[in-house]
Simulated assay, not measured.
Amino acid sequence: MEETKRFYEERYAAKYAQPQAYAYAICLKEDNYPIGYIKVDMEEHHDFGYGLRKEFWHKGIVTEAGKAVIEQVKKDGLPYITATHDRNNPRSGGVMRNVGMKYQYSYEEQWQPKNILVTFRTYQLNLDGNESLVYKKYWDTSAVHFIEPNL
C-alpha cells in the first residue's frame, strides 16, 4: 500500500489538483475494479497515454475508455492530442488508430531508464478542425526522424 501511495503522489496527485487535468483509473463496469489508467497531459504535447493489466489486453477496453476521454477533452476545448508508441509494440498503435488518431512520423530516442535506442511512432488527433496542424517537437528535437510508408 505504501508503494502505491508513493506512486500516486509522485505521478498523479498534482494532475488531479489542476483545474483541467485528465488522469483516470480504468475500471471494469461489472465491479468497478481498477485494471489500468488513462490520461491526457496538460503540457504542450497533450500526450494521450494508457496502461492496462495484461490479462485485460485485446478486449477493446482501452479503446472504449479512450473514446470517452477524448470526447471530454474535445468538449473542454483542447485543440489536439498526441501519443507515441515503441515501433516494437504495434498493438499500441492500433489503439491510437481505433480512437481516431493518425500516424504523423517516427523518431529515434535513447530511452531512459533502460538506455536503449527506441524508434517511436507519433500519432495525433486534431480536435479543433485544423487538420494541417502537426505537433513537431519530437521531429525537431530528434536527429533521426522519418515518415514510415503504409501506416
Rank of each mutant, 00 (worst) to 15 (best):
K67D: 03
E2H: 12
A83D: 01
L151Q: 06
K15W: 13
I61N: 11
R121A: 06
I70L: 12
Y16M: 09
E43T: 14
A14Q: 13
A65Q: 10
R6I: 11
G60I: 02
D31V: 03
G77Q: 07
P79K: 13
G60E: 03
N88I: 01
G36W: 10
D128E: 02
D140T: 00
G77I: 04
F48E: 07
F56E: 01
M101P: 06
A143H: 01
K15R: 10
L127V: 04
Q110E: 11
N115R: 06
E109C: 12
T84Q: 12
E71D: 10
R97D: 08
P90F: 11
Y33P: 00
H58L: 12
W139Y: 02
I61A: 01
P149I: 08
P34F: 05
D86W: 10
P113A: 01
R97A: 12
E2M: 07
Y105I: 08
A13C: 00
M1R: 05
Y33K: 05
M1G: 11
D86F: 14
N88Q: 13
P90L: 12
K54P: 02
S132F: 06
V118L: 06
Q124I: 13
P149L: 03
E131Y: 06
V95Y: 07
K114I: 10
K137F: 04
E3H: 13
E148D: 15
S142A: 05
K54L: 01
G66L: 08
R6E: 14
T4Y: 03
V40T: 01
Y107F: 15
A25R: 10
P113E: 11
G100N: 09
L28Y: 08
K54V: 04
I147L: 11
T119Q: 07
K29R: 14
E108T: 02
